[in-house]
């Protein structure tokens, strides 16, 4: 015990409290102006500007929380994990949809950082937007494994779904979607067509369609084969450019469309087999 106290005293002597502050002073590089979009849905919207001290590693979310703690506690913001896993803090930062927790201020150009709510989502308050339409589109494409050939009721005959690593690779990246809505906000088709499911929902349609445990491709194709469906995607690529998880929704959509158009010879053969009722997959 005495040894421990001695060590603590030694550590305190070597690291005086003042040093910590000096280190922090060194790390504070500069101050930035944080412009935050403010609205309560009733009165006129405006931007509030806050001067925030930043360090090398300060993220936009850190800056917003600093503003909320020390400048204006009424700033409306949604966040949770602070590590790009929950997808709650999506917003337009300097005009581009980004996750606030995943965007370091040192990576942005200029001394002004502007934060606005995600475009194409109804505003609730300040930076908080309503995701209900977005989630409805997601639900509509039936994002779950369906296979009527597999017995799931009788526990006696339950078996494993066997998948090879190559089978997993076909859909793995699309299953990394955190539903942050950045792709939906960046999509130019969503900007003009409210019925378009958007890149997130369409890429999930592909994710379940290529999963060899699922056989509801036809069902999903009927949902997305619509004048407001998959054909409205024109490969602007903005969804993939803003995706923080490498899901690459544009790739999934184009591959699904290629499949529906029977673009490759393999697809043509599969379609022929399906027409003749020989393909059981």
């Amino acid at each position: 015990m005495n040894e421990l106290i001695k060590r603590i005293k030694m550590f305190r002597n070597n690291h005086p409290a003042g040093d910590e502050n000096a280190d922090n002073e060194k790390n504070i590089r500069e101050k930035i102006n944080l412009k935050v979009f403010r609205t309560n849905g009733k009165s006129e919207s405006h931007f509030d500007t806050f001067e925030i001290p930043i360090m090398r590693w300060t993220t936009v979310l850190d800056a917003l929380l600093h503003a909320k703690s020390y400048c204006d506690s009424s700033i409306g913001i949604r966040y949770s994990c602070r590590m790009a896993s929950c997808g709650s803090c999506g917003m337009k930062i300097n005009g581009i949809p980004r996750l606030a927790c995943y965007t370091k201020i040192s990576e942005l150009k200029g001394g002004i950082v502007s934060c606005e709510p995600l475009a194409n989502f109804p505003q609730i308050r300040d930076l908080v937007t309503d995701f209900s339409v977005f989630f409805n589109h997601h639900k509509q494409i039936q994002p779950f494994i369906q296979n009527e050939n597999i017995q799931t009721e009788d526990r006696e005959v339950l078996t494993e779904y066997i998948q090879k690593p190559e089978d997993v690779d076909k859909y793995l990246q699309f299953s990394y979607c955190i539903k942050c809505g950045l792709c939906y906000s960046a999509c130019p088709t969503v900007a003009t067509d409210t019925k378009f499911p958007g890149p997130q929902a369409l890429s999930q349609a592909y994710r379940y369609s290529v999963d060899n445990r699922d056989n509801a491709l036809g069902k999903r194709q009927n949902i997305i084969d619509d004048r407001h469906g998959i054909w409205r995607c024109h490969f602007a690529g903005s969804c993939s450019a803003v995706c923080p998880k490498g899901v690459d929704p544009a790739l999934g959509i184009q591959l699904l469309r290629g499949h529906m158009l029977r673009f490759s010879k393999n697809e043509q053969k599969l379609a022929e087999l399906q027409d003749r009722g020989l393909d059981k997959s």
């Binding site: 475009a119 194409n120 109804p122 937007t129 900007a191 003009t192």
Partner: peptide, 9 residues
Amino acid sequence: TVRNNREGL
């Protein structure tokens, strides 16, 4: 203050 907040054209 467009609640819909669609970017449109």
